[in-house]
Amino acid sequence: MQEAGIVGYGFFVPRLRITIEEIAKTWKKDGKKTSAGLGLQEKAVAAWDEDTATISVEAARMALETAKLDSQKIGAIFVGSESHPYAVKPTATIVGDAINAGPAFMAADLEFACKAGTAGIQVCMGLVKSDMINYGLSVGADTAQGKPNDALEFTAGSGGAGFIVGKEKNEIIATLDETFSFTTDTPDFWRRQHAEFPRHAGRFTGEPAYFRHVFGATHAILEKTGLKPTEFSHVIFHQPNGKFPRIAAKKLGFTEAQLKQGLITPLIGNTYSGSTMIGLASVLDIAKPGEKILAVSYGSGAGSDAFVLTTTKNSSTKRAPISVLEMIQEKEYISYSEYAKHRKKLKSL
């Protein structure tokens, strides 16, 4: 079978920010305590002319730029999100036309809570390895909504990242060595058709949901590859807040140093389908050749996709035009009332 690897990556995080303290102030909660409890200072907010499609297009464009690839060579586009702008009508076709990939490409939108983007990477891996396509693009992006005053409102952020999977050795930045998924039917978080905001099962979202699946996928991929936690230079876990990935890393035997570069949620909030993928992009911003990376996503409902990657010599030359950490420095703070306007939380908008 063909080898497959990442040949380009890109990302986009909206410019607007709201601090956890500002949200807490509106609901008469202790901002410092909430912020510390979640391990999160602020979150990125999509402006009202931004949505999952616009974020995906920007991430896809940057991925093409990083890959130095002609968009007409893309054979498949998948967009994973839980906030696709349309219930029926794909985001992937908007992305395809906006980067001029069409009309000869296959496309579909995916949904698996916060892990639909990594599921798209797996689909691209399969298509590339089986020689059905030469290049596949998977984007994970969200403009996640939390119900006002719900715990999720403090963490639900906006952003996304895209990865182009290819097979040419001289183009690959990081080889996709192995993947493993751990999936069960677990009702920890959901949004019914026509419902505006998702619901979650409170405490149930921890042990039986996030931790069980992240641990299950991690243990299995380590066993499958025979690798030990100490052999990885970087590890990325899905980051619904700043706390869960830290607990997961510690329990699984990874250090804060391995986790640091890919832990972005404390600065921009949980970008759902974008979360693990932006973390991986941030790692590729600085990774040196020959480093092993472990990335484990988590999507409610529930499942985890684990990946083992190894950076190649191209990793030091093929980098995004701006790093994740640089892009998120570009920001503008807004008040809760401006946030309510941009996110259309006011009834008349």
């Binding site: 009202w48 002319d49 931004e50 499609a53 702008p85």
Partner: peptide, 20 residues
């Protein structure tokens, strides 16, 4: 150039995207 929503006033209508 960036890619943005140009018009999205009708909640049930099609969204217009384009350049800003």
């Amino acid at each position: 150039k960036v890619f943005r929503k140009i018009q999205d006033t009708d909640h049930e209508g099609a969204i217009a995207y384009g350049y800003k």
